[in-house]
Design a protein around this nucleic acid. Structure first.
Lengths: 204, 204, 204, 204
DNA sequence: ACTTAAACGAGACGGTACGTCTTGTCTTGCC
DNA sequence: GGCAAGACAAGACGTACCGTCTCGTTTAAGT
């Protein structure tokens, strides 16, 4: 995931490839993303710098690949569907809070989000590889709820997903307040209320 | 705003101070934050590098000060209160979309958000100086609505604020989809629905 | 000329061999010896790098072979013997000046002389392949002159040869002054005077 | 000696300057010129690479300065004048042979001569700083001899000097044969014979 | 003609050094 | 005596080549 450049990938050394990803993961944990250097990755991986530059366009791209390979298998697949939307959402949002708070994921995630601000291509890859599966899983659960009449017919589910996760990321990224499970619960409750088919709209 | 270091501030050259902020604003617009250097700011401002290092701890801090001085007076003060919460929120969210899309603000904002990921001190200053006034203004409007019975009594308004702005920032920061005024409207509608007192959720 | 390594020479591709020498000659003329690279020779010759490393031990060795193949046939054979030693020497020294000044020969010659300073093996090959024939030709002419009584009996002719060509190379290599045919003539006259059988030695 | 570039020399750190020259001398002795790198000089000298690139245009220029500062004071001044030209020349040529054979001088000298082949500016500086004093000293001795009637009136002394030293350098640079004191003596004898006024050549 | 082992082109690899750039500190000399 | 100017040590950048090492693919001997 990530290479778009020219060289013949069949001749790629899988040994070096893995060593680079491993070294990147280790080093980003040890010194942080800002003080992470290509030279250090190459040295730690026992690899020439050119081998990194040959296959990745930037430091961010290496770290993204490393991060993806790290959180490799744990595709969130689908949310459980207990029939209780609010409970299911609370579960997934609590899990999200836990992940965003786990230092193992927090540092690389913040780094990639930061890097994405100035590198739209990286941003795209980051979202598709890391974020999209989570969003899609939630959206599928919402679709089921919509079919079950727990979510109003007219709601655009892609917006609904961001209504749910947006507040969490906002607090995480901007550190407006501590990111807790209580907050996750409150957001889930409010979101469910927002999506519920209108009993009546008292506005007019 | 921003200085925390030692030297005697009374002897500070206001002329150099302003020149530095101006140069930073110009340069961040010309080359972007990533390629912005302290040396270039000093050169453009006609100032010794030491004069920058003396008063600011990092490149981010200079840019934050420059950004704040740029958007100086326009404190958002308070939201209008037309009595129609949804309409008032749509107005402020549309304005927010406009600002986040305005290249004059977008680049420095993204840069400072990115830099905040690895610099919690900067993050704190950024939030307090730039973001907090907006959040507070929205929260005040919500308090009025709560008093008017348009928002449920039990709702934690600081969470409500993030429910409203979170989805916008999520889309802006992660570029999951284009950030449009239609999206702002939808978010406002859903948020109002979430906060409405109405019948408590019919689930139990 | 030059190969000392192991592989079976009968299977050598003459096509590649020639292409390499041609490419080396062209490139040394285009970019000079210092900026000449094995990679560039291989690319220009349409040859794998290994094919060069297989048959030559160093860049200098390739260029030496290329240079020898360039100045291939024109073995100086023997000097003319008009009976007038001084005239014959002037002729050969003037020709030498011309060659040392001809850009076609000057650049590779200087490069190989330079390289020889740090590579005695190359030095040996260079001297034997390029220089020795010239020196030998002059020495033969001196031997004839010695037989004819124009050169003193006791003179060591190998030293005499270097007395003649040394001053030319000195000026060429060290650029102490322009290398001209007038200088060649003067050197020839002085050398002949040095070698002439002593009328008497007015020293004692 | 050597700097031709822009920066203000008054602010130059004499400490770093000396450390660089010392490191260069040491390293050229330890690993030879070809394997000498700017990086190693900087590391050994405890100096940033830029400090070298700021003040010298090339590796050769650094080594030349280092070499000159090494052989700093020992200006050859003037040759002794015992009245016996041949004896005096033998003395100086033997000394030259000794110097050219002394490893302390041989390696840098060969390196600078080699480098001069592709860098005429360096060549010029090398000749003027290192070689010219020797040549001038010999030329002065020859002038005295010419006044004393031991050298023919019409002889161009600058050519005469190269007649004397050229054969030595020829053998040293091209390694046509071992460079010995016996060779130096023979060259001196032949040179004196060449320059002697005596009976004009009996040829015409 | 068939086999087989080499030499071949291509080019990825681990490395080294390049010359440039930027950082944050230190120094000099002008005003 | 405060400040611009800029030299300095440090070290990462991205590039260029080095010489070695696979890869298939010719190619030429020796069957």
């Amino acid at each position: 995931m990530g290479e778009v450049k020219t060289p013949e990938p069949s001749r790629r050394s899988e040994r070096s490839h893995q060593a680079i990803l491993t070294a990147a993961v280790e080093l980003v944990g040890e010194v942080g993303y800002a003080r992470l250097t290509i030279e250090a990755i190459a040295a730690r991986a026992g690899v020439g710098k050119q081998t990194i530059y040959r296959w990745w366009p930037s430091k961010g791209a290496v770290v993204l690949d490393a991060f993806v390979s790290l959180s490799g298998g744990n595709e969130p697949a689908a949310l459980p569907d207990t029939g209780d939307l609010e409970a299911d959402l609370k579960m997934v949002l609590r899990a999200t809070v836990e992940e965003l708070t786990d230092p193992r994921f927090e540092l690389p995630s913040r780094a990639l989000t930061a890097e994405s601000q100035s590198d739209p291509a990286l941003s795209q890859q980051f979202v598709e590889a890391v974020l999209r599966p989570h969003l899609t899983a939630i959206q599928e659960r919402l679709r089921a709820a919509q079919r079950a009449g727990q979510v109003a017919k007219g709601v655009d589910l892609s917006v609904a997903v961001e209504l749910i996760v947006g507040p969490l990321f906002h607090r995480w990224l901007l550190r407006t307040a501590p990111l807790t499970k209580a907050y996750a619960d409150t957001v889930a409750e409010l979101a469910v209320a927002a999506l519920r088919p209108a009993s009546r709209k008292p506005r007019g």
